[in-house]
Every structure is written in C-alpha cells, then in structure tokens.
Design a protein around this nucleic acid. Structure first.
Lengths: 189, 189, 189, 189
DNA sequence: CATGAATGAGTGTTCATTCAT
DNA sequence: GATGAATGAACACTCATTCAT
C-alpha cells in the first residue's frame, strides 16, 4: 500500500462537513468542505465517492456517537425512571457539549438525501434504546408504531431543549430538568 | 381567466413555491416555481425581489394561515384545558388537512434563509397563543423564556404527531388524542 | 416574446463548434465553444440543452448542407455516368470549399455521441443519393446491404481524396479526376 | 504468474488500452486502463510517460502488427495481381480476426493526439507495401503523392469492407471478394 | 407590467499526473 | 520498481438575477 487512506483526513473531512452543514445546511459546497478540511477538492472524493455518501456517512457517524454517549454506563438493572432519566440526561448533555454536531444532525435528519439504508443503520445503533422505549414507555408494548411515536417525541423534545440551552447555556440545568419533567410526565407508564 | 390579476399571481407563486419547497426543499429553482405558477421566470422577481424574500414571505404566510386556523372560534372564556385542547386539535387538524403546507413549513423552519425579522413577525402572529401559554402553561408566568420553551414544545410535538398521521392517515383520531395526552400531561399546570 | 432566440447566435455556436471539433475533436469544451461564439458559457445551453444535442445537431446540419450541395442541379434525366459524375464532383468540391466542415464531419461520424436517431435523419437527407446508388451502382439492386457498402465506399474514397486535396490544394483537379476514375472503374455497373 | 515481468506488463497495458480505446475511444481513462491491465494507476506511467505516449505507441504497435501480418509470406516474385490480392486478403483477414485492434486503430487514426512522428514511423513499417504500390499501382511511378493516394485508398476501402464484415460476419468471403473487385478494378494499372 | 434570453459564478465530479511510502 | 493517495485544473451543466424587447 503506497499511502494508506489517512484516518486523520477522513476525520477532518467529516469535521469540516459537520461545521458547514450546521451553518448552511446540506447545500454546503464540497469545495468549501475540502478547503476547510485542508485538502484538495479532488481528495474529498477518494474518501467519499459522492456528496450524498459523505452526507449519509456523516449522519451515521454523528448518530452513532450520540448513541454511544447515551449507552455508556447505562444502568440496565435500575428501574424505568432511572433508566429513562439516564438516557435523557446523556442526550441533553451530549447535545450541549456538541452543539455543532447537534445542529448538523438536525439538518441532516430532515434532508431527503439521507437514504432508507442509512436510516435503518441508525435505527440499529439505537436498537437498545428503542427496545427500552417499546418495553417500558410505549402505550402498547406490542405496537411498533406506538414505540416509534414515543421515540420521535423524545428526539423532538430534546431538540427543543437543546435549542433553548444553546440560547441560554447558563440555564442548562434548568432546561435539562424542565424538559425531563415534561417528557416523563407526558409518557410515563 | 388567462391572465390572473396581480394578487392572484402572487398567490399562484406562493402556492407553487409551497408545493416545490415541500417536495424538494428550499433548493427548489425559481424557474421551476415560475413555471408551475404559470408565469415567466422574470415575473417572479417583480413580486419578490429575491428568492430569499419569497422564502421568507412564504414562511410567514403559511405560519399566519396556521395561526388563523388555530384562533378561529377560540373559546376565550373556557377553562385552561378546553382552550389548550382547542389549540392542539386545530393545530393537528390543520396539519392533516394541509400536508403540503405543513411539509413546506418544516423545511423552511430549519432553513438558515429565514431571517430573524421573519421569525419575529411569526411570533407576532402567534402572540395570542403565546400569551395563553405564558399565562397558563409556563412554569413561571413572568418568564418569557419558559413560555417560549413550552411554545416550541407544542410545535415539536405536533410535528411528530403530524408525521405519524401522514404515515397512517386512518389513525388520525388516535394520534391526535395520544399526542394531546402526552402534551397535556407533560405541561399542565 | 421578450427577446427571440437569435438565429445569428445559434449559427455562431454551430460555427464555433465546427471549428473546434475540426481541430480537437468532440472533446472540445463547451466553454471554449461559447467563448469563440462570443457568448456566455450558460447561453450555449439555451440553444442546445446538452453538449450531445449540440454535437448531433451540428452533424445533422453539416450533412444536410452537403446533401443540398450535391443535389442542387442534379441531372435526373442524364445517364448513370453523368449523374454519378455530378455527385462525385459536387461532393469533392464542397469538401474542398469547406475543409473545416469536412474535418468536423469526419470527427463526428466516428463518434459514439451521434445517436441512432441522428444517423437515421442523415440517411433521410441522403435518400435520393442512396436510391440512385441502389438502383444503378449496387451489385444487386434488391440488396440494401450492397447499396450501403457502395455508399460507404464513396464516402471513404471522397474522404481520402479530400485529405489529399487539403494537403495539395493546387492539385484539386487532378485528385478530383483520379478519385473519380478509381471510384467509377471500381463500381460501375 | 502473479506478478508478470516488465515486458508482460507493458503488453498488458497495451492490450487493456486496445480494448478500452476500441470501446470508448481515446477518452478512455488511464486509471481504467491500469485497472484492466491489473496494475496500479501510477505504474502505467513508468512504462509510458504520458497518456499521449501510450496512445502513440499503441497506434504504432497495432499498425506494425498489421504490416507484419500482410508481409508474412509475401509472394515477391509473383505478378502484380497476385501480390495485390495477397495484401488485400491479409489485410481483410487480419481485421476480421482482430476486430478490437482494428476498431482501436480507426479511433486512433482520426485522433489529433497521434503525432507527425508516429505517422512517419507507421509509414516506415509499411515501406515495402508502399514501394509495391508506387511501383505497380500508382498512376505515376515517380510520384510519391500518387502512391500515398493509392495507399490511403486501400486503407479506406478495407476499413469499409471490415465494417461490413463486422456487421455481417457470415458474409466475410463475399465482402472480401467484392471489396477486392472494387479496389482492383479501380486502381489496376 | 410581462417576458424569457442572457449572464457568469458556482456545482459536483473526473482525471492525467506526481510523489510519499 | 510498484503502489495508490493526493492534486487541482478542467468539465458539463445549473440557476438567481438582470434587462432588452
């Protein structure tokens, strides 16, 4: 192998893409992304064959990082409340610590450039969380649609919470708490 | 009426823009919008000086229509529950009846092309609703930010509800009801 | 109509394309063609939706001009020799007078960007000539393939003749005559 | 033989280039040629310093193979007819047996990337054949240009013949014969 | 005021060539 | 010598906007 694909460069591209997608959306130009990543225009395409591939992999990588943040130290044996609380806090903390990734993630999640495949892969990364929701929080444990509804609600409510935290970072504890109250009172079994 | 009058043309442009933004997002080409509105490319720019203007006015007009739908027959003298229920039902019903407008609205609301000014004007259109929220639902009546938080939550939760309804239109009553339960249990005073 | 498509501009584009295709082949850049035609890059595409369209229309227009040059004053009632002679002389004279068009035509005729449709349309323009060949020169009047063989031979031989004339323009009469002798002796009935 | 020696690699590159040039023309990408040759992108350039070099050497090598095919068993002492017939048959048979090489050769012969130098070198490979033409078939034995004219004619006529054979392989004997008749009747002394 | 041709900067992507490994 | 990642100048084509008609 002459020069291995540089993991560093790949990461730089994803980092640059995150920042630009967060700022200007998926219409961020590949040449801008390359420039910000400190590589030549053409190099981007040795790491990601098309812009859509880049966007999809970016979405997957951010979502995976979020899932990992949530599932680390997950208290499997604790009660429903503790486990729900754990997920919520991790989700909100991750968003507050990674506002750029969070913004990019929101832009990508409404984009039609994210494929069915990618969305399926993301669901896989959230499998444990989805299972927990289905078993404990959805109105009807047997109902996939009901679980999806609750899952979408938690995402939407955390997005709102994170927007507020972004606007008033000093009130993070307040918003994290209020958000959880609304969520838990709304969906608790 | 081969050549509609001015106001009709403006409306035709907004209608065409709604459909295209709902379908392909804010990257919809002005020439496509003009074609669908039945006018020449250049004519669009006598009604809206730039594409950003068109997008901003479109957002404002859709949001205003939604606000009007919500506030019509608003039961000012009823109790908090009834008034909240009214708003929620109107919101969800409007979204279910105008899926194209709703989709366009969501695309626009995450776009960076919608200006601070426009967002302020939208808040104005929702002033009555915001006041109701502030006075009845926000944790602290004196706190604007708390009211904004609850307002954003209702929007986010109705978006999720409407997405589910779009996926399973026959379950509209179920989703409208479940969504309201979650919201009301979550935020009731 | 605001400003009608300018026939002059269309002609300028075709002229510029002819010159560049003759020089560098079908890989001539559209931006070079536009520059040589004295228009903006984008304008080219209001006259020809794609580069392939431009190339196909160019081929058709050159071939049509050639067909017209050949068929003008065609002596329908003269004998086979006179008619064959007429076609050959016209073909060679046209090529000698329009060396750029001839070179471009040769480049285009071997290109895979010229569609079946275009080749059919060209055959239509040469219908009379083809008929004459089938009826008088092909070995077997009933055989389309035999006629195509002779038709291809006349083209190939005139190309060679024209190449020689291009190299030694002063010997046009000699080459025109020699070429015809070879052709006529080769294929005469 | 996992890693062929140098000369084999050169041959593999030329073989791959032949196939791709025959298929897609001289715009075949060097990376595609390298891949089909089973070597790395960069390796191609240790054998051929530029793409133009590759194309020129390819043209020369194909033309040389053709010349060799023609001159093998050349009946030097036979009459003009027999010798002419020998050349024609060898030429047509070679083309029918090596359709890919023939197609590549035609693509290359109209390309502006083949240099004056290369064309001169090709003429050298065909020196014996050209001499035969000059001495026996050209209208004026002292005239180089006349010989070149006849040489170009034989090439052009065989190309047409080979195209027809490619379209109807089962009629190879018919076309080889018809083609020769036209040629011989056309140019015989 | 309406029209649509004209503009040219910008887009995602390709590719011959270089050079670090 | 072989490798393939890196380069950046092209490329065909798009599009918001202008302006002659």
């Amino acid at each position: 192998m002459a020069r291995p694909l540089s993991e560093e460069k790949r990461a730089a591209i994803l980092r640059a893409a995150t920042e630009l997608v967060a700022t200007v959306g998926t219409s961020a130009a590949t040449s801008q992304i390359a420039k910000r990543a400190g590589i030549a225009d053409g190099t981007l395409f040795t790491y990601f064959p098309t812009k859509d591939d880049l966007l999809n992999q970016l979405y997957l990588s951010i979502k995976s990082a979020l899932a990992e943040a949530i599932m680390t130290d997950y208290p499997s044996r604790a009660g429903v409340f503790e486990r729900t609380r754990h997920c919520w806090d991790r989700l909100v903390n991750w968003g507050a610590e990674h506002p750029t990734q969070h913004k990019a993630m929101r832009q990508l999640s409404v984009s039609d450039r994210i494929s069915r495949n990618t969305r399926d892969a993301v669901n896989l990364a959230f499998q444990d969380i989805n299972t927990m929701i289905r078993d404990n929080l959805s109105r009807d444990a047997a109902d996939d649609e009901s679980a999806a509804f609750v899952g979408a609600l938690i995402t939407a409510m955390s997005d709102v919470t994170l927007d507020c935290i972004a606007a008033h970072p000093e009130k993070i504890d307040l918003y994290r708490e209020s958000g959880f109250q609304v969520f838990w009172n709304g969906v608790r079994p």
